[in-house]
Design a protein around this nucleic acid. Structure first.
Lengths: 145, 145
DNA sequence: CCTTGACATAAAGTCAGGTTTAGGTTTTAC
DNA sequence: GTAAAACCTAAACCTGACTTTATGTCAAGG
């Protein structure tokens, strides 16, 4: 049985964040003693799950929904699975996009690297040229497709 | 020479966004004819660069800074390179994080898959067990490290 | 002449996920 | 018994990147 301050330290989360989560309904069964929140093992476990789901990029609303499904029992396994499948797809897409962006940044870094070495001469093409390293050419083409 | 409406269609960006970019100083040299914005080839090229930098995850302020550096000429090559190097590092870190998250989601998907197949029985461990497929075990361990 | 459409502005609204503030109660320590 | 520390709430504020709203100007077409 913990107070909000203890939990704040345990999870290294601001007290205001814990109160905000509570307000958003992420601890549906939390009890109080004369107004003061009582965090039991159940709330601690819930918080572990919250941290986990936040890392997955789930919104607070979705996490709340997940908590409600958990309360409902095994009949909501399919919904919960669907939630994670959908999130998995989204994260995969995001990684794809970021890899493309990364290739663009690699090209830009190379570009300015050459520009600096060449000094003030501005005869550098921002487009693929024969003398461009293969890896950079690949990065350029990937990021501009 | 284009009006804001024409540019909006060219880039498939809302007019309000273009005005917002202007207000934020992203077109430092744009001229006007009796109050009306004149987008020249220079602004079109600037907008192409903006789209590119947005994809990199740069903030509007950073893009504005980049535009100012470009105006200053070749003396700011190092700053511009530094900007991209820093952004590259950030994107690499973000991809790392997302891969970890992805592994967690893979585990969760597998977990509910098994839970559904097993029906109502809730004797499924949310932790690695000997009968867990190797790939899932790897995903679990990676996402929980 | 007047209405429509494209342009303009400033200021307020939106969203998410919190954080801060102002003011009040409860618990703990001496 | 009192003071400090820890708790509480409601409501306002914050950031970023826009979008919406309210209001106004101006040129062209019927």
């Amino acid at each position: 049985m913990y107070t909000i301050g203890q939990v704040s330290k345990m999870f290294n989360l601001p007290i205001s964040t814990l109160r905000y989560y509570d307000k958003e309904g992420l601890f549906p069964d939390m009890e109080r003693a004369s107004g003061i929140r009582k965090f039991t093992e159940r709330e601690i476990e819930t918080l572990r799950v919250i941290e986990c789901l936040k890392k997955s990029g789930l919104e607070i609303k979705q996490i709340k929904q997940f908590m409600l499904w958990c309360k409902e029992g095994s009949s909501t396994y399919p919904q919960r699975k669907e939630l994670f499948e959908e999130q998995k797809k989204q994260v995969e897409e995001e990684i794809q996009k970021l890899n493309k962006t990364l290739d663009m940044l690699k090209f830009k870094c190379w570009y300015y690297d050459v520009a600096i070495k060449d000094g003030n001469e501005q005869n550098l093409s921002p487009l693929p040229t024969p003398d461009m390293p293969e890896e950079i050419k690949r990065a350029y083409l990937n990021s501009h497709s």
